[in-house]
Design a protein around this nucleic acid. Structure first.
Lengths: 208, 208
DNA sequence: CTGTGTGAAGGAGTTCACAGCG
DNA sequence: CGCTGTGAACTCCTTCACACAG
């Protein structure tokens, strides 16, 4: 399935297709064309066909794509076909929002636990996920083979939290803090800085 | 200053440079080289020079870039040199997190108000920003010349909220919900779907 | 005759190598 | 001599045009 390394931009679009397929399937739509996917996504139909064709021939000529079949294929490509265990480090508003969001809306990942240092919230539950002290991170990460951590602590605490994460064997961090994280090369960090998103958007708001 | 339309990817990197310059300036660093910016950002030094050179010659050969001068230039390019008024629609955990974050960490934007429909939270304050009923959106947007709205309501309510925003004269929406928003062409929508970010990341987590 | 799959062409963005200026 | 600024080469991605299968 996974051929030579796939184009990064294709990988970023696959979850968009997945989202739409989920919607179509829950509305009992069985077939979708690249043109319809184009209308939903804003990407061109050719691009969508190229993206999918990179991994194989998933469609039927003259007809379109079977929604359930395509969904299964995309799940397998991304690696969401078996549940991915994640943890969230930081039980502030953003951490809580992401926890609830992933529990209720993202069926492909499983939030194993939320970690913090504030004694007032340790032991609480976010829906059915327990908030634990950060000292238990390594134990939990090992037990549940956690691969990904979402880092939502205040920026000042991010470097310490990041080294705890790295030390727990987790290899991928999605960093919502402003800090640059210094971690071993074995850990892959992607920054998801929401104010950078907003600032780049303001450029376009002003050029109207 | 704003020449022909700038490459999108350059615009997305400018706020990253801005963040680093802010840090350097607060540490009284007056000069920075493209090599040092490269170390901080992970982008290549050539790329950084090209990005900046697109808008003009901001550096000094043999020396580097004056941090304050470069900061001013980037602010002007993005349009952050005068404060941008934004609103946040949806006072859930994500809305609160974004409000606090922008108030405390993003000095370039001004959160005018947060809107919701839940009577329990209307009238409350998030730091010093009032939560108001959505019916007041148009009035407030007009009064403060608001250009950008961050949409953080639950997905089911997003379409209605989006039309309220469009109707208030706001022309740019950063959409955190899962819904596809159907708004007039005059309104620019950018989706900031956090679970899509996470799902694409899982692809890389699995290819280790 | 419809809509996928795909080589070829085109365009956008990055890297290279070095000229140019302090 | 150091570091910026920049044409040229290159790589990556997108669009085009059409062959091909149902």
């Amino acid at each position: 399935m996974e051929q030579k390394n796939a184009p990064k931009l294709v990988i970023r679009r696959l979850p968009v297709y997945l989202r739409i397929l989920d919607n179509l399937i829950s509305n009992d739509v069985e077939i979708v064309s690249s043109r319809e996917l184009s209308d939903e996504t804003g990407f061109t139909a050719e691009q969508i066909r190229k993206d999918l064709a990179f991994f194989g021939a998933f469609g039927t000529r003259g007809t379109g794509y079977n929604t359930s079949f395509l969904r299964e294929k995309i799940l397998k490509i991304i690696g969401l076909d078996e549940h991915t265990n994640i943890v969230i480090v930081g039980a502030g508003h953003l951490g809580i929002a992401l926890t609830r969001y992933n529990i209720t809306k993202n069926p492909y990942v499983n939030v194993v636990a939320v970690f913090d240092v504030d004694p007032h919230i340790i032991g609480e539950k976010i829906i059915d996920v327990e908030v634990m002290h950060i000292s238990r991170l390594k134990e939990i990460a090992k037990r549940h083979a956690v691969k990904v951590a979402l880092l939502t602590v205040p920026s000042e605490q991010a470097p310490i939290a990041a080294s705890e994460i790295a030390n727990s064997g987790i290899s991928v961090i999605l960093n919502f803090s402003l800090s640059k994280l210094h971690v071993p090369d074995s850990v892959y960090v992607r920054n998801a800085d929401l104010s950078i998103e907003l600032q780049s958007l303001i450029y376009y708001a002003n050029s109207k």
